[in-house]
Design a protein around this nucleic acid. Structure first.
Length: 346
DNA sequence: TTGACCACGCATCACG
DNA sequence: CGTGATGCGTG
DNA sequence: GTCAA
C-alpha cells in the first residue's frame, strides 16, 4: 500500500536528485510543487488515481509526473527514481543537509573530488584535498568543517516543540523591546502561525537605525554563535543550536515585513502570484505598482492584504489551503448596489 | 507551440 | 581593491 | 515539468 506520504517523499527525493544533477530549476520545482499538492490533498491519492480524471486532474500534475506516480501506486516502485539513484549517489543528499552546502556544492564535491559521503568530506576537508577546487575557497572549506563539527556536537536536533520555544520568544522580544531604537518588535514565522513544531524563530523589528538594532541583537548574552549579521538581517544561534533570525525594517515597512516573515512560504508565493496578476508586486517592503513602482501599502498587514483585494488573514490560516480565495473581497460588495467597479480580475 | 514560472539578503569567489 | 555572478537560505 | 495563452 503506497500512502500519500510515500508519494510526497518520493517526489521530493526526485527533486533533490534532479537538482544535484543540475536539471532545469523549473523542472525541479515542478516535482516539489506536485509533492506539495499531494501533501495538502484531503483524500487518498490512490482514490484520485482510480477516480474520474485520474491524477492529471490534480494541480501541478501533468502527463509526466502523473505517469510516474501512477507507476509507483501500482507497483510500489519507480524505475525512474531507481535510474536516477544509479546516476546520482543518494548519499549526496546528506551533504546537502549541511548548512552552507547545497546541491551545486554537493555536485561540485562529487565531480571534482569524488566525494559522495559525509565521512569522505570530513577526511578531505582535514587532509587539504579540497584546496584548489574552483569555487571552493578557504572560507567555504572552513564553513564545511564548522558544519560537520557542529553536526557532531549535537545529533542534528532540528525542530523544537512550541512550548520550548515560547520562553525564548518572550525573553528575546523582551530585551529587544527594551532597546530605545526599537519602535516595534514581534515574533513572526511558524511561531506566529501557531505551529506546534518550530524550526527556527523570526523576529521583526521596526526601527530607524537597523544596524544598531542588529548589532545589539547579535551581541546579546543568549547568543552562542553569530551565523551572519548584515545591514538588514542577522542570524544567530541560541540555546544549543536553535536559530533565531532578526530582521530590521522601517516603521513604514513593518506590516509588509510581518506578512512576509510570517509566511508560510506557500502562502507567500500564492499571494505574490496574485499581486502580479493585479499589476502589482509584493515583497517584504510593501506592495508596489509594476508600472512606475509606486508604493501603495506596507505599514500594516491589513494594508497589504487590502491592497491585494483581501481581508486580513489570521496567521494560523496562512498555509495555502484556500484561505486566500476565501478572503477575497468580492466586486459586488465593494461596488455597492449601483456602480460596477473594475477590479483586476484574478 | 511557446514563454513564464515569487522575491530578496548575505557570503563568497572570480575577474578586472 | 571594487564589482558582478553564483550559491545558499528564508518566508 | 506544468500551465495558460
Amino acid at each position: 500500500m503506497v500512502t500519500n506520504e510515500d508519494v510526497v517523499r518520493t517526489l521530493e527525493r526526485i527533486a533533490d536528485l534532479l537538482e544535484i544533477r543540475g536539471e532545469n530549476v523549473y523542472k525541479v520545482r515542478a516535482y516539489r510543487q506536485a509533492a506539495v499538492q499531494v501533501e495538502n490533498l484531503g483524500e487518498s491519492i490512490a482514490d484520485v488515481a482510480a477516480g474520474e480524471g485520474g491524477l492529471v486532474s490534480l494541480a501541478g500534475f501533468g502527463p509526466a509526473i502523473a505517469e510516474k506516480v501512477s507507476d509507483l501506486l501500482q507497483s510500489g516502485r519507480l524505475a525512474f527514481l531507481e535510474e536516477l539513484e544509479a546516476e546520482v549517489p543518494p548519499t549526496l543528499l546528506a551533504l546537502c543537509a549541511l548548512p552552507g552546502v547545497g546541491p551545486r556544492t554537493a555536485a561540485l564535491l562529487w565531480r571534482e573530488a569524488g566525494i559522495t559521503r559525509l565521512e569522505e568530506l570530513d577526511a578531505a576537508a582535514h587532509s587539504g584535498t579540497l584546496q584548489g577546487i574552483p569555487r571552493l575557497g578557504a572560507k567555504s572549506i572552513e564553513r564545511i568543517v564548522a558544519a560537520l563539527d557542529s553536526q557532531r556536537d549535537r545529533g542534528a536536533k532540528t525542530r523544537r516543540a512550541r512550548a520550548d520555544v515560547q520562553p525564548i520568544v518572550d525573553e528575546l522580544t523582551g530585551v529587544l523591546r527594551a532597546l530605545p531604537e526599537a519602535a516595534m518588535v514581534e515574533a513572526a514565522g511558524s511561531f506566529r502561525r501557531r505551529r506546534e513544531s518550530i524550526g527556527d524563530l523570526d523576529i521583526v523589528v521596526a526601527t530607524a537605525t537597523p544596524s544598531k538594532v542588529l548589532v545589539a541583537f547579535s551581541a546579546l548574552p543568549q547568543v552562542e554563535r553569530v551565523l551572519m549579521c548584515g545591514d538588514t538581517k542577522s542570524s544567530v544561534e541560541v540555546a544549543s543550536g536553535f536559530q533565531v533570525d532578526c530582521r530590521a525594517v522601517s516603521v513604514a515597512q513593518f506590516g509588509a515585513a510581518m506578512q512576509y516573515f510570517t509566511g508560510s512560504q506557500a502562502h507567500n508565493v500564492r499571494l505574490r502570484g496574485r499581486a502580479l496578476r493585479m499589476g502589482l508586486t509584493l515583497n517584504e517592503y510593501g506592495v508596489f505598482r509594476l508600472d512606475g513602482g509606486e508604493r501603495i501599502a506596507g505599514a500594516t498587514e491589513e494594508d497589504v492584504y487590502a491592497a491585494l483585494g483581501l481581508r486580513w488573514i489570521p496567521p494560523e490560516q496562512r498555509e495555502d489551503r484556500g484561505e486566500i480565495e476565501a478572503a477575497v473581497i468580492d466586486d459586488v460588495a465593494l461596488a455597492g448596489a449601483a456602480v460596477q467597479t473594475v477590479l483586476p480580475r484574478i
